[in-house]
Amino acid sequence: MQIFLPIAEVSVNAFVLLGLGGIVGILSGMFGVGGGFLITPLLFFVGIPPAVAVATSANQIVASSVSGVLAHFKRKTVDLRMGWVLLIGGLIGSAIGMQIFNLLKALGQVDLLVTLCYVVFLGIIGALMLVESIRALRRAKGRPGQRRERTKHTWVHNLPFKMKFRASGLYISVIPPVVVGVVVGMLGAIMGVGGGFIMVPAMIYILGMPTKVVIGTSLFQIIFVTAFNTMLHAYTNHTVDMMLALILLVGGVIGAQIGTQIGLRLKAEQLRIMLALLVLIVCLKLGLDLLIPPSELYSIGVI
């Protein structure tokens, strides 16, 4: 069934879009990532103009994150206080990111910026996660029953403005979470993603939050930052396609619920290895596109 999208102005198969939404929704529920890093490039492949793909995926992420976070609220695995701190940073970062995005758009290099951001960040995060989770899995196999030491003192614990985050069992400075929020917000605006794939590892490895509250808390922050991004795109560029978003989110919200259930049945290390591999595959695909000589050197500019 073909469907004509009013803002993207292309005709696309509705079932393909539903499927895309569903896959991304499952990932969203399983890993607590918005899935934007996957849906944005996938939308390029089905022929949606890049500007529309970036803006619309932001809108779609809002829906799948709302659905995901409600499931986490019921299980009380959201650290609201941490969520608000991350959100403040996120909104600041988003505003900065939009400025950078528009500056590079004026220079005509926004495609390159977006792709390079994807390759660099997905590559680093994916590799780090893969190495770490394989190591963790080996440890678990070697000496069963061994508990990881949580109260490790690092530089993070020596900063001022300390705050108590009860749900996470942390007493740390607000500076690291705000900085994490700013970085994630910036990348979200530039790459058209929620930023969960960066925030989740940052929360685990830098902030030292327990894995069970990480996903719910990151979803909470992502809802508001992507909502802010959606508004910016809709207001300045008119590139949010409501029809496209609606189809994606029908698939997405169903997928998110399924994903949450799958996530509960898998071990944290297994989840992390799968996410790491997925991130690396997307990174590799985008990286190859930059390295392989294109068959057509020219392209028609989209305004």
Binding site: I7, V66, M231, H238, A245
Partner: peptide, 28 residues
């Protein structure tokens, strides 16, 4: 939708978010 997106972008943006919120909550 096309006219709303171009002539009343603020309204359009809010409507998109409302739709997203309802869809997310509804599915849950």
């Amino acid at each position: 939708l096309y006219n709303l997106a171009h002539n009343n972008a603020l309204m359009y943006g809010l409507l998109s978010l409302l739709l997203a919120g309802i869809a997310g909550w509804g599915a849950s």
